[in-house]
Each structure stands twice: as structure tokens, then as C-alpha cells.
């Protein structure tokens, strides 16, 4: 291919690894001789790598902005050494009213947080039990019939041929291969960089099965747990 004056759009697909294999090979050969495209690959490579580290989208609780500004108004009521402001009586009254509102809001927040079916995700970090680079972060949302797990895995070496990773919720008392006491959440595998992003619905009661872990299992359709843990949650669900 001839040298381009400007980099061509395939640069992005190449950096992100989404070209067809033959396209990727052709582009790799092309950048040997095309400085514009080569420079562009170098320029965009970092952004491409960072993309894979994006945190899952988080829903901010409704009304948080209003509660924060009420807290600021309440803090404003007291004299603050950093500021030299004069407040007229009316503004003091507004701030005092805001402070009263805030107390009520605080109670509501506590109530919401203790309800078992809170729509807000619980964050569970997982690590390799024997040490090592593998780690994962799972966001767990409860629903009336179980919940949803969204998990991002990194640094996990791909499983041996013919096997997959399996995610489990294990009984509070633990279990053993001989006496299993766990439910399977789902299976997955990782890409060549050891990363995976997965999402499962589950119907287990997390008060009975609060320990989350990942094992390697033969991909033979046999649902029985046979193998060793590669990730274990640092905290209980």
C-alpha cells in the first residue's frame, strides 16, 4: 500500500483490535511503510488501552444534588473562618430552614440504605486467593427474587483448553468438593489480555450464600464443582 498523507480510519480499529484478521494483517504491513499511520497508532494506543479500564457506569441516588446543596447551605449558616460574609436575617432563616430539612433527609437516607432491596449496587472486590495479578470488581444489585451481578475481571490467565471459569455463590459456612453447598451464577472466559466483563441474573438468597468466588471448571456440561478457586471475594455479600 502507498504511504498516506493523513492517517486512515483503520488506525482506530487496529488500535482497538476490532479489524478482521486479514484487515489487521494488511494494516500491520501497511504501517511499516506509512509514517502518518504509524504515528497515529502510537498517538492513539494509550487511549485504546485506557478504554478497557473504564469503571462500570454508576447510578447516583436521586436527590443527592439537592441534599448536598442543603448541606452546603447548612454549613454556610455557621461562621466560617475562611469567609468574611455578612448575612442578613432573611438568608439566615433560609439556611436554618435548610438545616431542618437536612435532618429529615438524613433519616430517610438511613432507612433506604438498610432496606434489603436497595437498587444501589454493593461493590465486591475479588482477588486471587494465593496471591497474583488476577482481580475483579463485582457490582451486585438485589432484586426481590435474587439479584444482578456485573463483574469486571482483569489479570486472569486464560483457562486451559476445554475449561471455563465459573462464578459461584457459596454458603456462609463454606463447603467442600465432597459436600458442596453453593450455587452457580454463570460461566465465562477472558480475552488474550486476561480481561472479561460479565453480567448475570441470579436467584440465590445472598444471606444464605454470601461468599462469592470463581473457579476453573471443565467445560463438559457437568454442573458439579470440581476445581480450584482462582478468585475469591474479600468481603461477604
Amino acid at each position: 500500500m502507498a504511504e498516506h498523507e493523513h492517517a486512515q480510519p483503520d488506525v482506530a480499529g487496529y488500535v482497538l483490535g476490532v479489524l478482521e484478521p486479514d484487515e489487521a494483517a494488511a494494516f500491520a504491513a501497511h504501517i511499516e511503510g506509512c509514517r502518518a499511520c504509524r504515528d497515529e497508532v502510537a498517538d492513539l494506543a494509550g487511549a485504546g488501552e485506557l478504554l478497557a479500564r473504564a469503571a462500570p457506569a454508576v447510578d447516583v441516588p436521586a436527590g443527592l444534588e439537592a441534599r448536598t446543596f442543603a448541606a452546603i447551605a447548612a454549613a454556610d449558616y455557621g461562621p466560617t473562618p475562611a469567609r468574611r460574609r455578612r448575612w442578613d436575617g432573611a438568608r439566615r432563616l433560609v439556611a436554618a430552614a435548610a438545616a431542618v430539612v437536612l435532618v429529615g433527609v438524613g433519616i430517610t437516607v438511613v432507612r433506604q440504605a438498610t432496606e434489603p432491596e436497595a437498587a444501589v449496587a454493593q461493590v465486591i472486590e475479588l482477588e486471587a486467593p494465593g496471591g497474583g495479578p488476577a482481580s475483579a470488581v463485582a457490582h451486585v444489585r438485589r432484586t426481590p427474587t435474587g439479584g444482578v451481578i456485573e463483574m469486571e475481571v482483569e489479570g486472569l490467565a486464560p483457562p486451559p483448553p476445554g475449561s471455563v471459569f465459573e462464578c459461584w455463590l457459596v454458603a456462609a459456612s463454606g463447603d467442600s468438593i465432597d459436600r458442596p453447598n453453593r450455587v452457580s451464577v454463570g460461566t465465562f472466559t477472558v480475552d488474550q489480555d486476561g480481561r472479561a466483563t460479565v453480567r448475570w441474573d441470579f436467584s440465590a438468597d445472598t444471606t444464605r450464600f454470601p461468599r462469592m468466588g470463581v473457579t476453573i471448571e471443565p467445560d463438559d456440561g457437568n454442573p458439579v464443582h470440581t476445581s480450584q478457586r482462582v478468585l475469591a471475594a474479600k468481603t461477604l455479600l
Partner: peptide, 10 residues
Amino acid sequence: LSYRKDLKQS
């Protein structure tokens, strides 16, 4: 759709 690497551009 691209950074998950499970789909090609086509």
C-alpha cells in the same frame, strides 16, 4: 462495542 473486543467491526 469496540473495547470489549468480542465483536469485529463488521
